[in-house]
Design a protein around this nucleic acid. Sequence first.
DNA 1: CTTGAGCTACCTACCGATTGGTAGGTCTTG
DNA 2: CAAGACCTACCAATCGGTAGGTAGCTCAAG
Lengths: 212, 212
Amino acid sequence: MADAASNLLKGWETIEPTGNTREKLLDVAQELIQTRGINAFSFQHLSQAVGIRKASVHHHFATKADLIESLMARYLADFEGLTKGILASKVNGKTKLKRYCNLFLETLKSGKHEKSCLCGMLMAEVSSVEEPVQNQIRQFLRDNLDVLESILRDGSRDGSLNVTLNSQKSIKSTALVVLSTLEGGLLIARSDHGPEQFSGMVTRLVALLSAT
Amino acid sequence: MADAASNLLKGWETIEPTGNTREKLLDVAQELIQTRGINAFSFQHLSQAVGIRKASVHHHFATKADLIESLMARYLADFEGLTKGILASKVNGKTKLKRYCNLFLETLKSGKHEKSCLCGMLMAEVSSVEEPVQNQIRQFLRDNLDVLESILRDGSRDGSLNVTLNSQKSIKSTALVVLSTLEGGLLIARSDHGPEQFSGMVTRLVALLSAT
DNA sequence: CTTGAGCTACCTACCGATTGGTAGGTCTTG
DNA sequence: CAAGACCTACCAATCGGTAGGTAGCTCAAG
């Protein structure tokens, strides 16, 4: 590592298309935040993991707030793509609900260490993020509650889920129960008995909402 | 249950609580962790809030890990007292469940800023705490799941709650769903629409588990 | 074809502030 | 006088961030 000069020269031969470093920084930052949290990761860790110097990270993201905002924007877009895929699939509501829950399970299982939802981690440390990111968090919640509401409505219509639809408030509350369960379940499973525990919980949650 | 404070002492001749400074330190630390998280509070903040110097905090708690361990020990004991009171009360299971959920609502509403569950915050930042505290977290989870299981069993017996009891695994999973919902709901409500939102979610959760 | 301005991406070296923690002294009280 | 509680003064490490420089690429003007 001491011969940074030769690293520099040899590095350029195998340089890849621009934009790659920035994405890699976001990838590592996301993994670090999902495993450790926002206040337990630093530009130092980030730079070491990616293989560039700390100051170079600032070239891509001026401040930590900028980094997190960019990261959340990407996360929101990714999640929206995944949920749209589920909503568009031609299966009944119960199956859609299962698939939606599996997004969280996959998050927990992916990577070397057990990860939580990025937005869940930011919610826990919400007092440490700037206002733009707080708005992004609320956006994530609104998006997901809308998706869940849609799924619950589908399931109620096709008879696979049992949700009382007479009250507009009721279905929104049910969506909130589901999202809360998934977010809380991730945190608990990560500290306790891992993906298996989470998976069992999801099964029970879906059963609670299923038609008898 | 062993008092963690006595672990710091060679002998156990000083069981009696020392001056209230120590308790005040724990109070402030708990409030800071519940609002900001473990990595966003420092001995500096703590000393300023209590009105003593930073070095004096170290007189009461040698390290940050010691502080958190003592804090969690107190929290576990407090929570156990509260839940025992609920379990012992002569009301039906559904009412017990409502009262249990209200413990979390009260946590959210208490204090100047909106607070989450201490254990929920530690779960989010679990990678930043030492092994003894990780064990305390798991203890908290086990205690609460046992309490919930007991409540659900009561409600099933007296007919106020509708939980399929044929499977031992089912009732444990249901307890986990409830705890996850409460922990996740605290985080969401704190970032979104506050105690009202949480309260509405709890109402829906109880309804989902109620006898038709 | 060459030159050089301007760009991106990265670097070394530094900044003040804050972190958790320690050494050692002072004051009070039983 | 012993011990608990609190103090001042310090430490190395790390934090987010900045200043200023360099290597390679692109592209237009001479």
